[in-house]
Design a protein around this nucleic acid. Structure first.
Length: 288
DNA sequence: CATGGGTCCTGAGTGC
DNA sequence: TGCACTCAGGACCCAT
């Protein structure tokens, strides 16, 4: 499940691999991947003959700059890009192929078919999710006060709020669980109950874990590989995610798996004490 | 408006 | 061994 660190690694790889390359031809094999324009034949036709000038990222979105267009690509759960020589055997679940100059192909594969591509014309509307994205975690303008103001009125569990991309961009299930562990906050804690000091520590923890994960090449807990097809290394450093039943690296207590915000959620019951019960919220999270 | 639940999809894992 | 079933989850849609 590519989150910000994984998408950033893919971005860097693609930047090195495809910037400056011209798209000769595009093949969309699975129409559902391309959301806009609605006709995938139009998507193919518009991109042909244009040069990839840059690869950016915003939250979990990849932004291919292909003047005059921006190709917005979201990997969702299992989307992958690989640059290969034309004629190399094709991996199953390859849904979009960009034939580049020089006899190479940029192939998009996606087992779950959840990924999306939107081709934005000049002056065109950005896809909704991108347009409504919250600030980047590393945005210097996002100080702890601004961060807290984004959720201090919300009663939903802090985990649900952090997963909400309009609150802050780029976090997913892995790094939310990790950041909350690092600051000893239970994921079911209603967001508005966080003390200012806790919010400040949480923002610092988010930045810390994302920075280390990017440097380690991301986490390969499922199917993630970077633009070269290589796995990340940060899964070895995870404290709670995917460690149900294993001892907490800090206190030795067995990590527990709960359900919060409809998601599998990992906590150390000792390092992250349950929020006190209130009449409105709290104490959600039945054991799985 | 905020919130939570259902939905999409396929392969891995589980239990009988 | 084989099969039915559940689970994984990001973003989006919808009902409350």
């Amino acid at each position: 499940m590519p989150e910000l660190p994984e998408v950033e690694n893919v971005r860097r790889d693609l930047e090195a691999l495809v910037v400056g390359r011209t798209i000769d031809r595009v093949e969309v094999r699975l129409a559902r991947i391309v959301r806009t324009p609605p006709d995938p034949r139009v998507f193919e036709a518009l991109l042909a003959g244009h040069r990839i000038q840059g690869v950016g990222r915003r939250g979990k979105y990849l932004l291919f700059e292909i003047p005059p267009y921006t190709l917005v690509s979201h990997l969702r759960m299992e989307g992958q890009y690989r640059l290969v020589r034309a004629g190399e055997p094709e991996a199953p679940h390859t849904h979009v192929v960009f034939h580049l100059d020089g006899g190479e192909e940029l192939r998009y594969r996606d087992v779950r078919q959840f990924g999306t591509m939107d081709l934005v014309p000049p002056g065109g509307e950005l896809p909704k999710g991108l347009a409504e994205l919250g600030p980047e975690p590393f945005d210097p303008a996002l100080d702890h006060g601004a961060f807290r103001r984004r959720f201090h009125h919300r009663t939903a569990p802090i985990k649900a709020v952090l997963l909400d991309q309009t609150c802050i961009a780029g976090l997913g299930n892995i790094y939310v669980d990790e950041a909350l562990f690092l600051v000893g906050i239970h994921p079911a804690t209603p967001a508005h109950r966080l003390r200012p000091a806790q919010a400040e520590a949480l923002l610092a923890a988010i930045r810390d874990v994302l920075t280390r994960a990017i440097a380690a090449g991301g986490s390969s807990v499922r199917s993630y590989v970077n633009g070269y097809g290589r796995h990340g290394g940060f899964q070895m450093a995870l404290h709670v995610y995917g460690r149900e039943g294993e001892p907490c690296r800090r206190c030795g207590t067995a990590i527990e798996k709960l359900r919060v915000a409809g998601r599998g959620t990992h906590v150390c019951p000792r390092c992250q004490p349950q929020p006190r019960r209130s009449r409105r919220a709290g104490q959600r999270g039945a054991r799985v």
